[in-house]
Nucleic acid binder design. Structure first.
Lengths: 348, 348
DNA sequence: TCCCGAAGTTCGATTTAAATG
DNA sequence: GCATTTAAATCGAACTTCGGG
């Protein structure tokens, strides 16, 4: 390994000067161009690469950001991760990716490992609420800028980026309503998910405003579960149940795309064609939604942008820490967007 | 920050002793239990966490593995990543995740960044062949154990984990053939993809053996492209073309699941029902395949296992480096597996 | 000689304080 | 004082060497 001392020897200057030149430190103003040239050439010639360990030890910086996802296999994560990665890349931070598998023990172990690595920021991608006060402790006293995506904590100490679920629910049901649907079945989200209740609130509010009747026999709830494909299974099961009831509906509003896929499967199995005999709308706009047959009408969360936004919050936080400024936690709520595809159709 | 010296002061011993005790170094045998207790208690009390920078500087180890994927949004990556993450977790390595976006410039920049971080191993997830001799240079002289997933290099210097594409092609066409299909359309992979030609070879070999006729008018090729969703689009387009030809076929074998999804879309649009009027088989078994309507029959790559396997190769390599042993590159070829679902049906 | 513990050196870069002309 | 350069201290842990009992 070639060290700064090798470059010093090669160029004929001291390691101090080499350091000053190569880092273009303030003192570099006083150093004549010839000296700089000589040093740079020597560094180049030897293929000098500064040792990041030594650098970090001195500077106390790691240029690393921790990223925790609750479950990588959830397609929701994929696009958010892409947004995170891309934005981090632009600011020359590197992400350490950890996947918590929806297990608290993994969360704790990973958090410790990340803290040990002296991550400068942390991004947590989680819509589950198993994150409680206990773990907040470690994080808060560490004073590491943290942003949560998809889940807002009561505490004001941590930044968050969430989608406007209420608006999303509104958009979805409004879309169906505008197509003439009046008998709508609903698959609601599980209670433990923070997204569930505001999304439903948006639906109820719209119903009240527009006089749409919500038939409680057409409303079912997704069970608690921590596996993305189980949302599909549950959507399938619940839709089967809805069909068995023989209580007619012309449209189905699913909690998310996964349960919508399950619903479509069940409807198709029952001989119903989508969208001719039943419209289906999802939520999220995960990647497969556009590839589905029929392609899925859904409410899009701007996932890449949300990832990028979280990175922005965190890097701002890092800069604030460096400059010993105080920053308050930011709470961003981004607007979802209706994406009309083939799975919904007008009754008129 | 509490340092080892603080613990020394608190416990009344020297930092040497503290280090020996806390790391349970060989010399720790000689240290009486009382001393250990006192030191451990002091460390606990102060909440001492060793500084990884200092540790790494001395030990020259980072306990970090670099992971490069060509495109995270490709669902193929997701499951492999899960396998990588999970196996790394068990051996206490942390992954730095980089996404090359199929761009050479990003590849180079990320590679430099990873090398600067002194990653101890590298896993490259890429089926494209834009990785050439140039970049190998940096890697080889760095002597970092590296494993490529999904792509075997001519050079013997780098380990690889690939699926047996020839067998996969065989399995797929054999399945269709056994269901009685004789008029089969084929969407082949793009030339630049290493997977394409062996997969096709497996098909041809089976055809020869079984007397199945391959109608060149029913064989189309996916164009080169570096975007996963474009495989869907292309599959859609090519299938439309196939249909327009009016040359009948009862089954379609797609290069991968993405193009299979595109094909299903096109067939459905043309009023053909899957699998009643046309069977479709894919390749990979990406997550959406099971959720599709109809669920997709496909040839599964054991993606999680492949990720785990790559980690195994790399950690073995790391251990070899530590013990100054030489290790030859390993080349693993894993068997794919036919997964029969709803998109194929017997003609008989 | 065996056991226990400490002083001092090293890893490689940055930075402070200071020395030159 | 100014431009130019550097010796020496520092970051925190780990290891080598050595001394006392």
């Amino acid at each position: 390994m070639v060290t700064i001392r090798d470059v010093a020897k090669e160029s004929g200057f001291s390691s101090t000067t080499v350091s000053i030149v190569l880092n273009n430190a303030p003192l570099a103003r006083y150093i004549p161009a010839v000296t700089k040239k000589r040093i740079e050439r020597a560094a180049e010639k030897l293929g000098y690469r500064p040792n990041q360990f030594a650098r970090s030890l001195r500077s106390k910086r790691s240029h690393t950001v921790g990223v925790m996802v609750f479950d990588m296999t959830d397609p929701y994560c994929t696009l958010v991760l892409r947004g995170i990665e891309n934005t981090l890349y632009q600011s020359s931070y590197l992400p350490i990716l950890t996947d918590v598998h929806n297990e608290r023990s993994r969360f704790e172990r990973y958090l410790e490992m990340l803290l040990d690595r002296r991550i400068e920021g942390l991004i947590v991608l989680a819509n589950w609420l198993f994150v409680d006060i206990h773990l907040l402790g470690d994080l808060e006293k560490s004073s590491i800028p943290t942003a949560m995506i998809g889940c807002e904590l009561e505490t004001d100490s941590m930044s968050s980026v969430i989608v406007d679920n209420e608006l999303g629910g509104h958009l979805a049901v409004e879309h169906l309503h505008s197509l003439g649907h009046r008998k709508i079945a609903f698959i609601r989200g599980p209670k433990a998910l923070t997204d569930s209740s505001p999304r439903w609130r948006g639906i109820r509010t719209f119903a009240k405003q527009s006089g749409l009747e919500l038939d409680s026999r057409l409303i079912v709830d997704l069970p608690e579960s921590r596996d993305p494909s189980s949302s599909f299974e549950a959507g399938y099961k619940l839709t089967e149940d809805l069909i068995k009831q023989k209580r007619p509906f012309t449209a189905l509003l699913a909690f998310d795309d996964m349960s919508a896929f399950g619903a479509i499967r069940a409807l198709t199995k029952a001989g119903l064609r989508i969208p001719e005999q039943c419209s289906v709308i999802g939520f999220d706009d995960v990647a497969p939604a556009a590839l589905y047959t029929p392609s899925l009408t859904t409410v899009r969360q701007p996932m890449e942008a949300m990832g990028a936004s979280a990175v922005g919050i965190v890097t701002d936080g890092i800069n604030a820490v460096l400059e010993k400024r105080e920053v308050a936690a930011t709470h961003r709520k981004v607007a979802p967007e209706l994406v009309v595809r083939e799975s919904t159709r007008s009754l008129l």
